[in-house]
Amino acid sequence: MLTKRIIPCLDIKDGRTVKGVNFINLRDAGDPVELAKRYTMEGADELVFLDISATEQNRKTLSDLVLRVAGALNIPFTVGGGVSSVSDAKKLLRNGADKIAVNSAAVRTPDLINKLSKSFGNQCVVVAVDAKNINGRWMVHLVGGKVPTHIELKDWVIEVEQRGAGEILFTSMDHDGTKNGFANQTLAELSFLVNIPIIASGGAGTTDHFVDAFKIGKADAALAASVFHYGEIKIPDLKKKLKQENIEIRITNENS
């Protein structure tokens, strides 16, 4: 059976991890490579690196970082943040990224999804979607959820699938940061609408929330940042819990 994936997300600024981390025994917790290696050892199935300082100057820093990550990791990773052209994506993929996440640029120029998919295959193309429930309608937002659009979430996910997205990373702005659980109802609806994998994001607070994201939300993967960075949830504990709940999950000697 294909297993559900657990994905820690690392926010990157100027080549360094942003959020404070309280891992002990790390020489440099601000070094994304050190942190990534630690998560890999603990049994993370995949990693996402999100560059939140996407300026021209920083693009070079990011692609250098990707090269270092690829040299150190033996699990897949996705890179996102400010990717707005095929050539941006090409640099990152050439340096060893497995997938590219696009967000605002895809909403502004939807054809970017077609171009990326044609150039690199749909397996490389993750479309990240930030959305918020406004008067009962889920609306897509831009720029890290700050700017609303007139696009409905369900229309957008269908469109991105048709344009060649290989995966959707759905973040509920209503749940993000609350630690009250994922947007399970909406996740399940998205899974019904499209036939590509969906990563749940926003709201992780306890191990039970992950159980619900998979059982109720039908998510294929679940992403979280702070609960992992601050050590509130340990990946080996989380995976044990999921296994107990009969959810298919990868448990190896490395994280038992």
Binding site: T3, R5, E167, N195, P197, A221, R250
Partner: peptide, 13 residues
């Protein structure tokens, strides 16, 4: 087939 999500993406046994 379309009875499963395509692409398959992730770790399998």
């Amino acid at each position: 087939p379309n009875t499963v999500k395509v692409p398959q993406m992730g770790w399998n046994v």
